[in-house]
């Protein structure tokens, strides 16, 4: 119990602090590192809730894949040493106002709401169950979203290649040549 609470507060402290650092840091590579910490801490939360598989996916895909992708693109497009200019105070003020107001409204609503849990026994989430559910066509099966996601991933892959590809010499983009 206590251990759980300590763990939770540790993770949430990490998440809150590094979330805010992610969006305020003036060095881009550091921001990416902070994001990584946030994502790892979220994985810890999943572990805590006994969703080991999800935590593993979070670590490998999010922390491992996406953050690395982001760091690659930073290296491609930015100078690492460069510091961002500080945000205009007006813009920062208004954005902060909007965000705090939103957070305030959300938290008030959450506090007001009476959540009611079911009395049914919890289900043990193991790999066999996850695999069966993903590929099952039955009542608790997720074959359709699974297939949709697979098509989406394929499409995203193709789209990423097509979009990022340099315009070939046969069909030079006038604007590109002008700008470069």
């Amino acid at each position: 119990m206590i251990a759980n609470q300590i763990m939770f507060f540790l993770f949430s402290a990490v998440i809150i602090v590094f979330s805010i650092l992610t969006v305020t840091s003036r060095k881009i590579l550091r921001a990416a590192a902070y994001l990584l910490f946030v994502l790892v801490a979220s994985a810890g939360l999943y572990f805590m809730l006994n969703y080991q598989f999800l935590a593993a996916v979070q670590l490998t895909l999010y922390a491992g894949g996406i953050v690395v992708l982001i760091i690659f693109s930073i290296l491609l497009t930015s100078q690492i040493n460069q510091k961002f200019e500080p945000v205009e105070w007006k813009k920062a003020l208004f954005s902060a106002l909007a965000s705090i107001a939103g957070a305030f409204v959300t938290i008030i609503t959450i506090l007001d709401f009476k959540f009611s849990a079911t009395a049914e026994a919890a289900k043990e989430v193991n790999m066999r169950l996850v695999g069966n559910s993903l590929l099952s066509v039955g009542k608790n099966g997720y074959i359709l979203p699974f297939e949709v996601i697979s098509i989406l991933l394929l499409a995203a892959m193709v789209a990423a290649i097509v979009i990022a590809k340099k315009a070939g010499p046969k069909n030079p983009d006038p604007q590109t040549t002008k700008q470069e």
């Binding site: 909007a98 409204v105 609503t109």
Partner: peptide, 16 residues
């Protein structure tokens, strides 16, 4: 995005 977010918050407040 700023207008969108503010509008969404406003609508949430109004409706809730």
């Amino acid at each position: 995005v700023y207008v969108f977010i503010s509008g969404a918050i406003l609508l949430a407040v109004i409706f809730i």
